[in-house]
């Protein structure tokens, strides 16, 4: 099937099998490998992308269902300069191995668009569909809050 998905603002078309998962479409058809795969059961969130601005798990959606929609991946966060979330994850040691990081930042982005000063618990709740095995989450929470403050400050 032919699908056209707008990825990070650019329309991308490909002829794919209907069973191709969105995450595989992004990673193998488009060669954008910042979106990761960490489980088989929709549990880990390493594959998180924004579908029309809303975070979803791209391992649990067929690429054909994204036809005509807008998808944002981690590669689309930087806009000339690093996004405040990218800066804050770096400054607050919000990542270690980096595998969960794209998903965490994208969920953070969706959260901060609604609320730039979330509490610790609000951040934890928002990222509770995303697993991290390295950080213990403490600095991820801090990073998202710091990015909110930076966005607020601008």
């Amino acid at each position: 099937m032919k699908v056209t998905v707008t990825i990070n603002g650019t329309a991308q078309s490909a002829d794919i099998e209907s069973r191709k998962l969105l995450v595989d479409f992004i990673r193998t058809e488009l060669g954008m490998t910042g979106t990761h795969i960490g489980c088989d059961t929709t549990s880990c969130g390493a594959c998180t992308v924004l579908l029309d601005g809303t975070p979803i798990k791209s391992c649990t959606m067929f690429a054909v269902s994204a036809d005509g929609h807008e998808v944002q991946t981690v590669e689309g966060l930087k806009n000339g300069e690093l996004h405040p979330l990218q800066v804050s994850f770096k400054e607050n040691h919000g990542l270690q191995c980096g595998f969960c990081t794209p998903g965490m930042m994208l969920v953070g982005k969706a959260l901060l668009e609604k609320n730039t000063s979330p509490t610790d618990d609000e951040v934890r709740w928002a990222i509770s569909g995303n697993l991290c095995r390295c950080t213990g989450y403490t600095n991820i929470v801090k990073s998202i809050q710091a990015a909110g403050a930076a966005i607020e400050g601008n």
């Binding site: 649990t60 569909g129 995303n130």
Partner: peptide, 9 residues
């Protein structure tokens, strides 16, 4: 119900 990302879909 489920987790925040699953709830979105």
């Amino acid at each position: 119900v489920a987790d925040p990302l699953v709830r979105n879909r």
